[in-house]
Design a protein around this nucleic acid. Structure first.
Lengths: 227, 227
DNA sequence: ACCTTACCTGTACACCGTACAGAGTATGTA
DNA sequence: TACATACTCTGTACGGTGTACAGGTAAGGT
């Protein structure tokens, strides 16, 4: 009888890179931005800290791999359907990215803070470029528009998550929206929020409504260049 | 003869908070994102590491104060002139912020990564809200538009700086643009950049031209809501 | 039965933020 | 003038971080 699970070449490989990434993401989800230490990861998979370095050359490589995995999780089908109008496809992409990333707030900083030059990131960029070419944009304007959209999507997610150092997931959207409304709403119905007290932060805790509103303004601006 | 420099109450105050912030910013400029350690700051002002804690409760407070100082350096006059068209004023604000922040790439991550809830940040937000009210937007749309603009300005700067972990200032814009063009330019003149090799990162090293292009698309989208 | 290869551990180093106790000095008050 | 007070700054120390180095151990292939 042979060994049921296939081994690679050397001795048994007790760990896998995926286990390590699972542990890192788990720590990030539970403890926020800085919770994924090498020692913590190793402890979570039940191994000495150095064992991690068998699979990744350094911590940055772990982070890169994790970012790639997160970006690889986005469902490309929803926006590669060339039968749908291009604006709908962009909105689908934007919503998909937002929901994927805000599921792991602690990891958002790592995604945005890195070079985003892995295969999945590039594939995403390429799909977006094709999409904008479908819309009728020339190569230069497509590149610029894709940059603009990337900035909006990642920028808004990054800003939203920026001041949530605490552990755990974001508060539910209903509560976030309520907080934002409390912050921005002027006291008289038609008044303009003039005091700092009325707008306590520059940009935080936005709703999906507001996210889509901004995205649509961007799309309006881009659409005007199509003709 | 009396002491020329005025003292507060206690013994001589050899350090000032500004000296500490100068040191922190200097380290950030020379060493990038993570170069501003408490120990490094203290060494640079010639003092034991703990002395810093006389002026700031913890490192986060140092960072907050530094962010506030950077945001306080933006020249408000260029965009509070209500005589100029509102789009011009937004562009002036966007360019001012970009030039101020990209002068200190190592500090950008700290600005964007924090809550941005200091007095200067709030004042900036308020000015932007007023500006958009001048443009004719109602309170809700002004808040949403200001959020959109903030996301664009800070998001693009953050993404641009994200993969420059190395020390020193950004390369000069001419070189950055050349790198970007090399990256995005399709090999045949009219071809569309399809390969990942042709677009090696999602969004990096953009020119002022491209920055303004994106900003103007955003402004187009906002302007369409004014009527 | 070797030898090679790859996994994993123990130990160690330099650095980080920062808490605690105390030394030193300039000031306000008697 | 003398003292008490208030404040700045230092020495030391603790627990945390990333990771380099040397070895031990177990599973192949031959």
């Amino acid at each position: 009888m042979s060994v049921p699970t296939e081994r690679r070449r050397g001795p048994r490989r007790a760990l896998t890179e995926d286990e390590i990434l699972d542990a890192a993401l788990g720590l990030l989800d539970e403890g926020g931005q800085d919770a994924a230490s090498v020692r913590g990861i190793a402890a979570r998979v039940g191994v000495a800290p150095n064992a991690v370095y068998t699979y990744f050359p350094d911590k940055a490589a772990v982070v890169r791999a994790l970012v790639e995995r997160l970006l690889g999780e986005v469902d490309h089908d929803v926006f590669t359907d060339r039968g749908r109008p291009w604006r709908e496809r962009v909105e689908a992409l934007a919503l998909e990215l937002r929901s994927r990333l805000s599921a792991h707030p602690g990891a958002v900083g790592l995604v945005v803070g890195g070079p985003m030059d892995g295969p999945h990131a590039l594939a995403l960029n390429e799909h977006l470029l094709h999409l904008l070419a479908d819309a009728g944009l020339g190569p230069t304007e497509a590149a610029r528009a894709s940059y603009l959209l990337i900035v909006y999507v990642f920028g808004s997610i990054a800003l939203e998550v920026a001041d949530v150092h605490e552990a755990g997931p974001l508060p539910p959207e209903t509560e976030r929206v309520a907080a934002r409304d409390r912050a921005f709403a002027a006291t008289p119905a038609d008044a303009f929020p003039r005091s700092s007290a009325a707008a306590p932060t520059m940009a935080r805790f936005i709703s999906t409504d507001q996210y889509l509103w901004g995205l649509r303004r961007v799309l309006d601006g881009i659409a005007a260049r199509v003709g």
